[in-house]
């Protein structure tokens, strides 16, 4: 079976000199949960953003669900609608209520009518555990609640893939769990997911595979237990020695 996501020798260079991604090959199977870890500035977020072409690779190919996104004839908006993305900074639309945040793209991209879009929105809000916040504005919510709204907003599009870019890095410690709970639950439903995170406990609990990236390259990949406890490369070992120390 062909993979759901395939990165082929993807490179991303900023300002012609900074090689954020220096030739990454990555395959993600349907239903697989891949967690990308690595030091800050290693290029892991850039790799993730190359999957939905928020960052257009300098070279290489990105194939999602059998279609090359680098092919200019591919409808990028259509392809992106199949990939939900959750950002570190939530990026909710502050001028819209929670409900409108979740219905906007459903109506404009999926062509759903208001009643249908709102039904789906309420369903997704219930799923992330905050059904009562539909009429609130993002500012009135805690960080954890905002991030759950962001997840609901993505899920309402019925994507085939979910991308998470450090979804808990901007959260206070007591809110991390409520967001990770939602993501773990989602992983259990068989959603294809790529998650960039520093939460190693989460990676252990939810990941099928961990990918360690450093200096724009995949250094090591494998099941979480193997990578965490028995890293093959020195760089991986040094990284986990540091972050798993406490």
């Amino acid at each position: 079976m062909s993979p759901m996501i395939e990165l082929r020798n993807v490179r991303k260079t900023f300002n012609k000199t900074i090689h954020a991604v220096a030739g990454v090959d990555l395959e993600v199977a349907e239903g697989e949960v891949v967690v990308i870890v690595g030091p800050s500035g290693s290029g892991k977020s850039t790799v993730l953003r190359c999957i939905n072409l928020l960052e257009v690779p300098t070279s290489g190919d990105v194939i999602v669900d059998g279609r090359s996104l680098m092919d200019a004839s591919t409808d990028l908006d259509e392809a992106r609608a199949e990939m939900g993305m959750v950002f570190q900074g939530f990026n909710l639309f502050p001028h819209l209520t929670v409900l409108d945040n979740i219905t906007l793209a459903q109506k404009k991209v999926r062509g759903r009518d208001t009643a249908e879009a709102e039904r789906v929105a309420h369903e997704q809000l219930a799923r992330v555990g905050i059904p009562e916040k539909a009429d609130s504005y993002p500012r009135q919510l805690s960080g954890g609640q905002q991030q759950r709204v962001a997840i609901a907003r993505s899920l309402a599009m019925n994507p085939k893939i979910m991308l998470f870019d450090e979804p808990t890095s901007a959260l206070d410690p007591e809110m991390i769990k409520e967001v990770l709970d939602v993501i773990v639950e989602l992983a259990a439903t068989g959603m294809t997911m790529v998650v960039v995170t520093h939460e190693m406990g989460f990676a252990r609990a939810a990941a099928d595979r961990v990918v360690f990236i450093d200096e724009g390259l995949i250094v090591e990949t494998g099941p979480p237990e193997d990578v965490f406890t028995n890293p093959q490369s020195d760089r991986t070992k040094a990284f986990f020695d540091k972050i798993l120390a406490y």
Partner: peptide, 14 residues
């Protein structure tokens, strides 16, 4: 903020 455009584009909005 740039994230607003990115969030819109990521949802499939033109």
């Amino acid at each position: 903020p740039r994230g607003q455009m990115e969030a819109g584009r990521a949802l499939g909005l033109s």
